[in-house]
């Protein structure tokens, strides 16, 4: 064979080997971070995990305590946020997939919704601060819940629209052919067919907001004591982690790690459940 050609072959093969090695390396690199982060989290968090974490209040520096009030605060605010955000998001998604599938409005809403989906959450915190905290004159749990709800809405809109679009039109036609009005067709037929996917969307939204810190910093603020009064500052797990981790006290930092472990496990569990629910169909 012509030596210049075999040189070319060798070069091409060499380049292929190098880039394929890079591809393996890149994947190893990506997976390493997952292992390292989860490993450190388990290592640091498990040692502090005890029953007291779930039964005692956040302590002053230097004494023992738990994370009961931030856990309760997070649960309450997350629940309210989902209760506000889910119906709104589902209705909007319903309009986009059912009534206005070919509307101009739908295209615009979809575009704006996609931007809200990845908008910086700290900006949403500023927004809620302006419309609620500044108006009411004090930080409050309601403001925290509303800012989380603003994050829930685009997630639910997106999944609702996607899931309803996947419902076969023959089901709709069958419903229409027996004389069902559209509203009943949607609520009794389309929602049922898309139920698993829509639940997945809500779970993903919960996973998303349970770790959100930035929008809570200046809406719900923080509260060292047991308080579920939503008209006053409410403690939340992410904000407590933020505060405790940056503190100079060793026992606070320990609690921050434990809180971080609890949040991560909750979020990972939620996303795995969501994945299992959505498994039969390809989503997103």
């Amino acid at each position: 064979m012509d030596p210049s050609i075999s040189r070319l072959y060798a070069k091409r093969r060499r380049r292929n080997v190098v880039t394929m090695a890079l591809a393996y390396g890149a994947t190893g690199f990506g997976l390493t971070w997952l292992v390292v982060i989860l490993g450190v989290l388990l290592w640091e968090g498990l040692s502090g995990l005890s029953l007291a974490v779930f039964t005692e209040m956040t302590p002053p520096p230097g004494s023992a305590g738990g994370l009961l009030n931030p856990i309760a605060g997070s649960l309450v605010m997350t629940t309210i946020a989902v209760l506000i955000g889910t119906p709104l998001g589902m209705l909007a998604g319903t309009y986009m997939a059912e009534y206005g599938r070919y509307d101009k409005l739908t295209t615009v809403v979809r575009f704006i919704n996609d931007i809200l989906l990845s908008a910086p959450s700290i900006v949403i915190g500023l927004f809620v601060y302006e419309i609620m905290v500044a108006q009411m004159g004090h930080f409050s749990g309601w403001a925290g819940a509303v800012s989380l709800a603003v994050i829930v809405v685009p997630v639910v809109v997106r999944t609702t629209e996607d899931m309803l679009t996947l419902v076969p039109d023959t089901l709709r036609e069958a419903a229409a052919s027996i004389g069902l009005p559209r509203a009943l067709m949607i609520t009794r037929v389309a929602y049922r067919a898309a139920r698993a996917g829509m639940v997945t969307g809500v779970l993903l939204a919960v996973a998303r907001i349970s770790g959100e810190t930035a929008p809570l910093l200046f809406t719900a603020l923080n509260n060292q004591f047991w308080s579920l009064n939503l008209n006053a500052p409410v403690s939340s797990l992410p904000v407590v982690i933020f505060q405790f981790a940056l503190s100079p006290y060793k026992d606070w930092q320990k609690l921050a790690w434990t809180g971080a472990l609890i949040i991560t496990m909750a979020v990972l569990a939620l996303s795995i459940i969501a994945r299992i629910l959505a498994a039969p169909r390809k989503t997103s």
Partner: peptide, 23 residues
């Protein structure tokens, strides 16, 4: 009921725009 539901969903869709406008 159908008309009401239609308008309800439509206002929810508009609410998404209002959120962005509000921000």
């Amino acid at each position: 009921g159908d008309v009401a539901f239609r308008h309800l969903t439509r206002s929810a869709a508009l609410a998404v725009l209002i959120i962005l406008g509000g921000i």
